[in-house]
Design a protein around this nucleic acid. Structure first.
Lengths: 340, 340
DNA sequence: GGGGTGTCTGCATACCTATGCAACTGCTCG
DNA sequence: CGAGCAGTTGCATAGGTATGCAGACACCCC
């Protein structure tokens, strides 16, 4: 019923040449005559032959597989990025092998083992914070790692993020220009450098304007936690008149709480600024002012860095920060002079 | 700097046993004495040995890799499903290798070739309609295929969907019970069986109530197309008073158009019913009445079917339909006697 | 004590391809 | 005309593991 697997040897026999010849025809940069090329390809076509990527990987030591380690996909920023990343890698003949960790990275250990078992050429992580243990293991195996949308300062690992410090600053300047007096922040997860940087840039800008951070809470990159944080903040004696939320995913939850739980108006009662510019931020139901993370450029940088490290494993890993604009919409009071 | 790769032979030498012994220790179901097991594992631990999945796959013919073919991830139903699918497969020692096709499946051919090159054990497709060509190639290679959230009748391929006919019917009955007189539908993509079934169940139910479909448009599973379709419908002399939209992703776009473009109220002016019950459907800004697709159960069924086909490739593929409830929220007029 | 049974182990080989090396061809150039 | 060279090709081997086969061993029971 189902045909036997067809190998390069089968093709060689049919074409009356050696197995090496077949291999060379399908190997880029090998020396093959036009005649040979024609005969082998004809035979291959007829038999339906395609080189076995595994056997190839076994011998070349390069599998053209990139491991993608990801904790969750409910923040729409990630599916979008992953789709683009997969496309970009596919262009270059690479593919993504997915490894999901628990939301709190419990089983990271096992995931890493699996990862190494598959002899992946490189690793991209997203929506996850890895332990030093992992770092060490991958370095030891000589596998390049690129952190996407996260960074671990001092780890020596390559990382691609937006310019989170600048982004936080832009949010602060915008809210200050809007004349807000009680400006709060709901952070992502205080173990994540990305979140810390956004906070740091935000706070610094507030302080240099002579204003302090009015309130601070941890939303743990989770809708429910962010919603609760917002409720708590608004429940205080002097609630904030503006909240910068560390990503859009949480910001939308905060807007829902303000409007539907507390009956407040955005931006009249409270201004909201998010981070990411996910597609939903542009939807009229939210119309969220937010700092854009240039997904495309971040993905391109990730791919470029990865390819570079594949070529030269010993080159120092780079930490790349890509600047993104503040996208002004309707969820925060618009100061004089700002274009929407 | 970076250590050499450590192989089973290295472990064997250190433990003073044969390479086969090492292999057996790491092979489930092989016969090994307790003493041997201990010695080998100790040596393996010390050297940091892990079996090479590629070499293993090459010889066993099973890679424990499942190819996932996906066209787009912007409909949040898919990221959610993929995350669950990845988890479930990981439990069983399998992993997903991603292949993205263009939104309109242009480069399906190349994708299939790549897929086969990697010797995947099985294939899952999502958000995509495959050509018969693909079907044929995979069958020929003896690789089981499971279509997720799509089905191709008569193809003989395994498929897991919700009960789309019943779902369409439920939507119709709900809208009929709500007393709507001009009931329209915005379909997904008329090449997709899933969409056709939803329409068919919907239309049949309307007709058996003596009512016809008031209007019909194709939203191509795309936000923009769906929005335009809604505008066109509402622009007619006798606009609908209810619209059943073939998935939530489009339904949310339709609600945005109605409210923000046309200044209409939902559900007072127009009732909206969606399909999927994506997380956002429950958000208060939309509060969308929708037919739930039980993602967890669909994923479980997909994994089960896949595992079964891996064991017995010749067993007939099954088409599995999983029933999901209508989740009543606030986007459609609620008839007497319905619980919210 | 011998034959049967069951458990472990090692040897040798197979899986499929890429590649170093040597041999061969046809050619140019001195 | 011979040396040298570039371009092709085949041979043989490597890459890391799983597994059939046969041998070794222990054990039991008659």
């Amino acid at each position: 019923m189902t045909r036997k697997k067809v190998t390069s040897l089968d093709v060689a026999r049919m074409a009356g040449v050696s197995q090496s010849a077949v291999s060379r025809v399908f190997t880029e940069g090998a020396s093959v005559s036009g005649e040979m090329d024609r005969r082998v390809r004809a035979a291959a076509e007829e038999l339906g032959y395609r080189p076995n990527a595994l056997a190839r990987g076994l011998i070349t030591g390069r599998t053209r597989i990139i491991g993608l380690v990801v904790a969750y996909l409910d923040n729409p920023f990630y599916p979008d990025a992953i789709e683009k990343l997969s496309h970009a890698l596919q262009e270059k003949g690479y593919h993504l092998l997915i490894f999901t960790t628990g939301k709190h990275g419990i089983d990271t250990e096992r995931v890493i083992s699996d990862l190494l078992d598959y002899q992946v050429d490189g690793i991209v992580t997203a929506s996850i914070d890895l332990s030093n243990e992992l770092t060490r293991q991958c370095a030891r195996a000589g596998i390049p790692v690129v952190l996407f949308n996260r960074g671990i300062p001092g780890s020596g690992l390559a990382a691609v993020t937006s310019d989170n410090l600048a982004g936080g600053r832009k949010a602060a300047e915008f809210l200050l220009a809007g004349g807000h007096a009680r400006i709060a922040h709901i952070a992502g997860f205080d173990g994540a450098q990305t979140s810390r940087d956004r906070l740091s840039g935000f706070r610094t800008a507030l302080e240099s304007a002579g204003q302090g951070l009015h309130a601070l809470a941890d939303g743990r990159y989770d809708r429910e936690a962010a919603a609760q944080a917002a409720r708590d903040m608004m429940d205080r004696a002097d609630p904030p008149d503006a909240i910068f939320v560390s990503n859009d995913h949480m910001a939308l939850a905060v807007m829902d709480v303000l409007r539907f739980d507390l009956g407040l108006c955005v931006p009249e009662d409270v201004s909201i600024v998010g981070y990411d510019d996910v597609p939903m931020a542009a939807w009229p139901a939210y119309d969220l002012t937010t700092v854009r993370q240039p997904t495309r450029r971040m993905v391109d940088a990730t791919v470029t860095e990865l390819m570079t490290l594949l070529d030269r494993p010993n080159r120092a890993a780079r930490v790349i920060q890509i600047d993104g604009p503040l996208v002004v919409r309707g969820s925060a009071r618009i100061p004089e002079g700002y274009e929407t």
